[in-house]
């Protein structure tokens, strides 16, 4: 089975080389595609310095969702059977990839979420962030009937069926919690596995503190509308 690591990157010239080096060392059997989301710094050059890394330079910044979806489009066209998403900011540790890839490779899940919260609470965000995470957990328990502890984690693995669906339908901003619902609505199996994540190596998170409230409202609205929609293929 062909495997690919999708690395979305927006102005990550400082942290990207370490991510790509770690991918080469810890996941050598993965092809790597960097989706440069219209960065204004040297992200593209930093990625192109690595032979064998395919770089997709988007001419404009279209947001994390659009960038990751470009990776799914690439993976779908390339016929990959397994895609993992690894953020370019260094938060996701490539040596943890086997953990999230295993259920897909074993055929026991269509999508796998790497969770920071299942085992230990090594990660501690702001109180507001933790409150938001709690809301998502409650929402997931009620609406999905499934315990998903880390909805906002972007460290994920997908099989071909999930890649195909997400390449057609993927939210533009704050896509992670909503993507779970998109897949579950199609009857796909999602599992969570515990992973370790690093603190950010450089740069700022795409979710600033001030945007947290907008994030919560937008995601809840999107999930609500998704459940109302009879056919969510469009959009």
């Amino acid at each position: 089975m062909e495997k690919i690591a999708i690395v979305p990157a927006y102005n990550e010239e400082k942290s990207l080389p370490a991510v790509l080096r770690a991918l080469r060392a810890d996941a050598p059997d993965f092809d790597v595609v960097v989706v440069n989301d219209g960065s204004t710094d040297g992200t593209s050059a930093a990625a192109r310095a690595f032979a064998g890394v395919r770089v997709i330079d988007l001419p404009e910044n279209i947001g994390i969702g659009g960038a990751v979806q470009t990776g799914f489009l690439y993976a779908r066209e390339g016929g990959y059977g397994l895609a993992v998403q690894v953020d370019g900011d260094g938060q996701h540790v490539p040596s943890e990839i086997p953990k999230i890839a295993a259920p897909v490779l074993a055929g026991t899940a269509d999508a796998v979420i790497g969770s920071r919260f299942i085992e230990k609470a090594k990660f501690r965000g702001s109180a507001f962030r933790r409150a938001g995470i709690w809301v998502f957990q409650a929402l997931n328990a009620v609406l999905l009937g499934q315990r998903i502890t880390d909805s906002t984690s972007g460290f994920r693995a997908f099989n071909r069926r999930a890649i195909d669906i997400l390449s057609r339908t993927y939210p533009d901003d704050y896509p992670e919690p909503e993507a779970i619902y998109i897949l579950r609505r199609r009857g796909l199996t999602i599992v969570e596995v515990p992973v370790d994540m690093a603190g950010r190596a450089a740069g700022r998170s795409s979710i600033g503190f001030g945007h947290s409230l907008y994030y919560m409202v937008k995601v809840c609205l999107a999930i609500f509308v998704l459940l109302l929609r009879r056919d969510d293929r469009a959009g």
Partner: peptide
């Protein structure tokens, strides 16, 4: 916005020389 996003993605994929 939707059309623009699709165009940006398509241009990126074409420039990268993907399967497209």
């Amino acid at each position: 916005k939707e059309t623009q996003k699709k165009l940006v993605q398509e241009i990126g994929l074409l420039k990268a020389g993907g399967a497209h």
